[in-house]
């Protein structure tokens, strides 16, 4: 019964592709909303983290630790970007992380 249902599904899919053709996505087609959202997602996170550098001295040790952790979690996502974006944003992220870690160390050393 299960095999018959699978065969029927495959046959219907093949018939559909013959009748309506295989969809073609041109190279310059804009990404779907879902993909665009995923792309923006890392940038939103990046901006949210790095917008806090100005306040770093006013943040608590726990808040600073959380920000360092968020930087570390974001890094692999930026590493998956194309070469130029990766170069630019990894450097920017590193500057934010280094500042938070520096302030944290200063506060803990007091």
């Amino acid at each position: 019964m299960k095999n018959r249902f699978r065969s029927l599904t495959i046959a219907l899919a093949m018939a559909g592709s013959v009748l309506f053709g295989v969809p073609h996505f041109p190279d310059d087609m804009p990404p779907s909303r879902g993909i665009a959202d995923a792309q923006d997602d890392w940038k939103n996170e990046f901006e949210d983290i790095c917008s806090k550098t100005q306040d770093s001295m006013a943040l608590t040790a726990d808040e600073l630790k959380r920000l360092v952790g968020r930087c570390d979690a974001l890094r692999p996502r930026i590493e998956m970007l194309d070469e130029t974006q990766k170069k630019v944003y990894l450097k920017r992220l590193q500057m934010c992380r280094d500042l938070f870690a520096f302030v944290l160390e200063s506060k803990e050393g007091k």
């Binding site: 550098t53 001295m57 280094d98 500042l99 870690a101 520096f102």
Partner: peptide, 14 residues
Amino acid sequence: NGCEVCHPNIFPIK
């Protein structure tokens, strides 16, 4: 300069 131009790259010290 903000903070991160100088700290900690140029002034990594307390």
